[in-house]
Nucleic acid binder design. Structure first.
Length: 642
DNA sequence: TTAGGGTTAG
């Protein structure tokens, strides 16, 4: 490197002598040779040599050119070399003091430094530098606003800085808006921001639009997001990805897939971001076949960790643990998300012991577990009734991994104790938590009370929920279900009446099943599917065969006080039974029937599914909002504990 | 010199 430097220096000095001769004949002044070499090194490398020249430049009392400095700062960001970035900062401060005040060029360099600190997550350094700048332009403000908008928990500050910026007489540009839109935490703020954008005429900017779409989607306003999207004349891949991701994240998998088809028709090629969102849509709707097709495209991107994590989750959530496991062992890299996905995936599929084995492996050779990993581990314990193990992990997670128990972990513990029937212990735990119990905790306890038929504690928990969330229909429904389970029809009726008076309706049970790239939906009690006649015929056949094996409809799962026959009818048309019949009618030899549900499976459907898996010799997999049931040879993977 | 989209739990 030394010889290279010497060579460059010699070349530069010769050129310098020539230019000095030109200077005498009246041409421009030429930069100092050190500065010229520095600029050349910043362009072509080696960059370490450029950094090494900085002290000499300072000693010579000359200034490096701002464009090269900015380039070098960017390189530090790309290579993650914080120390080098700081060295540049020190150099710039030194030269600013020695060289007499700020110039236009030094503003650019300061902006780059602020951006660099922000990208390194050193927000305080970024803000300190910003605060000490003698002048700031729209780029300086935007850099800080963007940094705050992207930092967790500092969105409000981003909005405050935007106000400050305007007070300072600096107008926001498209960069500013596209950065700050993600910081709009409420529909009102977002709407006001949208109005501002239209007022200054930036609403047709592609970047601003994609941020607008994303902001609306993140607040759950699919219609407004879709509205902004539909108005677009030109649109790029990121905009398509924004809208598809928005639908996928909001749980509208079918909508996401429709948009994906339209995107392809418009001639855009999916990239990693698109495929990740499409996979998420597949995951949400248990569209395994579509997911497998996406997997074929993923092969092109074998180093994309995010995409592979999404694929792994898709296999887990579709109940394909073999595929998930094969992918997990083949993956090029595995980060904490990959491990957490695998652990939760196994646990949700009733494979708690294996989940804990993967956790052991992770401790031995994987990354440090995080708070989400521990949620998965505790979930594994609670759903397998491993009370002692659960306590062990809960008590040791701080000491072993520095993870403070959060609400989610406490909730897992309440679930663990509650499911195991230790309701008093669960109550004691809630009393000793360092958090005020929230509605989630009480709802968990309420679920356990229902499972163990403890109406007294249930009504207490439900009352606590209704204190915190008076409009909550879940609490009232669960409470009335308990009364119904206990055949306390007058109490149940009182509860139902309150709901009727409040205009609250129980969310109907829904089940989804994929067939030939289409998703078929079944709603409890509704025979709206075009093939309903055949489905009912098939269901009757399945019921007859199940009854041969001793199936008796368990009418206590019907929630109203009706005659037995009516009760049987209501039970018969639970959405998962319709979906099972549709599945057995259409499924391929040797392939399991996969169903997704919006509510937890009821005990009668659970017993029925077990028997069908036996009489038909076919595996049935049902995913509810919390976990999976793999029915095969007459037994369920959950061990009847859910 | 500043900007937009994708993964894990509940």
């Amino acid at each position: 490197m030394k010889s290279l430097l010497k060579h460059l220096l010699r070349k530069r000095l010769t050129a310098d002598r020539r230019s000095r001769r030109r200077l005498h004949s009246g041409s421009h002044s030429h930069p100092h040779p050190l500065v010229s070499i520095f600029s050349r090194l910043c362009l072509d490398g080696p960059f370490t040599a450029a950094l090494a020249l900085l002290p000499d430049i300072a000693a010579a009392g000359v200034r490096a050119d701002p464009v090269s400095l900015c380039r070098l700062i960017k390189l530090c960001v790309r290579h993650g070399t914080v120390g080098d970035g700081r060295a540049i900062h020190r150099h710039v401060s030194l030269c600013a003091h020695g060289g007499g005040g700020a110039t236009h060029g030094s503003l650019f360099v300061s902006n780059s430094l602020v951006s660099m600190y922000a990208k390194f997550g050193m927000l305080d350094d970024a803000l300190e530098l910003f605060g000490g700048m003698p002048q700031r332009n729209v780029v300086s403000w935007t850099t800080v606003v963007a940094a705050l908008a992207n930092a967790p928990g500092r969105k409000k500050e981003a909005l405050r800085f935007l106000v400050e910026m305007r007070r300072d007489g600096v107008a926001a540009n498209s960069y500013t808006f596209s950065s700050v839109l993600g910081a709009c935490g409420t529909p009102g703020v977002l709407a006001a921001m949208h109005a501002d954008i239209i007022k200054v005429g930036l609403d047709s900017d592609v970047f601003v639009r994609s941020s607008l779409i994303d902001a609306y989607m993140k607040l759950g306003d699919l219609d407004s997001g879709r509205g902004v999207f539909d108005e677009m004349v030109t649109c790029d891949l990121v905009v398509w990805n924004s809208i598809i991701a928005g639908f996928a994240q909001s749980g509208d998998g079918v909508g996401a897939m429709e948009l994906f088809m339209r995107m392809k028709e418009s001639g855009f090629l999916a990239n990693q971001g698109t495929l990740t969102s499409v996979l998420r849509a597949c995951t949400g709707m248990v569209m395994l076949e579509v997911g497998r097709q996406v997997h074929a495209h993923v092969l092109k991107y074998d180093r994309d960790l995010i995409l592979h994590n999404a694929l792994l989750d898709m296999y887990c959530k579709c109940g394909c643990l073999l595929d998930a496991d094969a992918l997990f062992s083949r993956m090029h890299d595995r980060d904490v998300i990959s491990w957490s996905t695998m652990i939760s995936g196994l646990a949700q599929n009733g494979r708690s012991v294996e989940a804990l084995k993967v956790f052991d492996l992770m401790k031995a050779e994987g990354p440090t577990p995080n708070n989400i990993t521990m949620v998965g581990v505790l979930f594994a314990c609670s759903h397998a009734g491993l009370v002692e193990d659960g306590w062990h992990y809960f008590r040791s997670m701080d000491k072993l991994f520095g993870i403070q128990p959060e609400r989610e972990h406490c909730n897992c513990m309440v679930d663990l104790l509650g499911r195991a029937g230790k309701l008093d212990e669960a109550m004691k735990f809630i009393g000793e938590m360092k958090f005020e119990p929230d509605s989630v905790i009480w709802r968990t306890l309420l679920g356990a009370c229902r499972m163990h038929k403890n109406a007294t504690l249930a009504s207490y928990a439900a009352t606590e929920i209704l204190k915190l969330e008076p409009e909550d229909q879940g609490a009232r429904i669960l409470l009335s279900n308990i009364y119904a389970d206990l055949r306390q029809w007058s109490n149940a009726e009182k509860s139902w009446k309150t709901m009727r008076d409040q205009g609250v309706k129980k969310e109907p049970g829904r089940s989804w099943i994929e067939l030939g790239k289409l998703v078929h939906v079944f709603i409890a009690g509704e025979l709206s599917h075009p093939c309903s006649d055949r489905i009912v015929q098939e269901l009757n056949r399945l019921i007859r065969r199940a009854k041969d094996l001793g199936y008796v409809p368990q009418t206590e799962f019907v929630l109203q006080d009706l005659g037995t026959e009516q009760k049987e009818d209501l039970l018969k048309y639970h959405s998962e039974k319709l979906a099972i019949a549709f599945g057995t009618m259409n499924s391929m030899e040797g392939k399991p029937v996969r169903i997704m549900k919006n509510l937890r499976i009821c005990g009668d459907c659970h017993a029925f599914a077990k028997l069908v898996s036996k009489t038909e010799g076919k595996a049935i997999i049902i995913r509810d909002p919390v976990r999976f049931h793999h029915f095969q040879h007459g037994v369920c993977s959950c061990g009847d504990y859910w």
